[in-house]
Design a protein around this nucleic acid. Structure first.
Lengths: 210, 210
DNA sequence: TAGATTGTTAATCGATTAACAATC
DNA sequence: TAGATTGTTAATCGATTAACAATC
């Protein structure tokens, strides 16, 4: 299946499709039509069919889609079966919150290590994840294929560590710092999680007209 | 200034404008043209002028925009001067990570309290924020104007607590659980922070064509 | 089979970009 | 003043929605 350029709007909807299909599957739903799925997700049936047609024809006329099958197809499109791996940079509160509460494996990622600079953390194992000293990063990247670096370091350290990750061949940066990373090289993708931007958008929406 | 309906695309860019203007201001830049700002943000000058024109004319022909002034205008548009307040529901790792590391005040919010059910947390003060028992939520909401509830509870508890917050008159929900909240009432806004969706989008982007 | 629903093409809608008169 | 740059109108581009023949 040759990918045409898929728009960012579609890419952002794919995880939602995956999530809703998983929920449906969990409660035992076997088949669903585009219009039923659209209803429960607040989209139009046309949009769903249009989105899916970027990747192939997964449905059947007169029947709809098999939930489990479509969920699997989307998992595959999202790269969840590629054996991606991730490491956490910065084992502070946020890093630890992700280690303890976020299920990387449910998104198809193996969380293999964390890195920090604090001596009291290095050498420990948190939530089953070994914490290494940040000085050993280059060596680790050389001997382990790491897909994504999760940046939960202080903002001041973000740019330098990002660069080291990129040099080490990481493919994606999941950036929780409020720094805008200027990453060169078209082969590295940055996904920003800007809490402040999110809260400010909410602030706008709850602020009534004067 | 009568607000026409402002598109979601524009709303999502406003916090970025704010952030970039703050950075410029911090390094002492006094004025900037739409094209210079566009260059540094990866947008077009047209888009910036078009976006700003939703809210008024903040520039001057031949000159551009005064950085400090425009930053202030956008802060005002975003509602950062409205004295918004927030409470955290769930003082687990993620809740505590937000209390310790996220500067609510920099987004114009006062973080006034946290709520949890665990006896060992209730009564304590974490990062300067008092932790109350979740049973006292209704009373708290009655005696304090709360703009936003930050949902960092386990998914299983999310829906019920969301409902209690809405009943208590909260205007916005900042939802960190991976539950899709079905909140009724058009006067309540939900802003989702779905970590998994974000990581899966990244996963898609780093997954090369077969 | 008949009814339902897909995948896809065409129509519409909205957002981005370009152009330019106004003017600091 | 002359040059620069805005705010806004028009043109373009892309995404969403509608329609429908194909077909399970």
């Amino acid at each position: 299946m040759k990918k045409q350029r898929v728009s960012s709007a579609v890419i952002r909807r794919l995880p939602r499709y995956y999530r809703h299909l998983s929920d449906l599957h969990d409660v035992g739903v076997v088949r669903i039509s585009s219009s039923a799925l659209a209803g429960s997700m607040g989209l139009t049936a046309s949009q769903i069919r249009q989105d899916l047609s970027c990747f192939g024809g997964f449905g059947q006329q007169g029947y709809g889609y098999n939930v489990e099958n479509l969920r699997g197809e989307i998992a595959d499109i999202l790269g969840m079966e590629r054996g991606h791996s991730a490491i956490i940079l910065g084992a502070g509160n946020l890093g630890r919150a992700l280690m303890e509460n976020f299920h990387f494996d449910r998104s198809g990622f193996a969380l293999t290590a964390a890195f920090d600079i604090r001596p009291e953390l290095v050498g420990r194992t948190l939530s089953g994840v070994p914490v290494h000293h940040i000085d050993t990063l280059e060596g680790y990247l050389q001997s382990n294929r790491v897909s994504v670096g999760v940046l939960t370091v202080p903002s001041s350290a973000a740019a330098a560590i990002a660069e080291r990750l990129v040099k080490g061949g990481v493919r994606g940066l999941w950036n929780f710092t409020n720094t805008e990373l200027a990453v060169h090289g078209p082969e590295v993708v940055v996904e920003d999680v800007h809490f402040a931007d999110s809260l400010l958008a909410l602030s706008y929406m709850i602020t009534e007209e004067t």
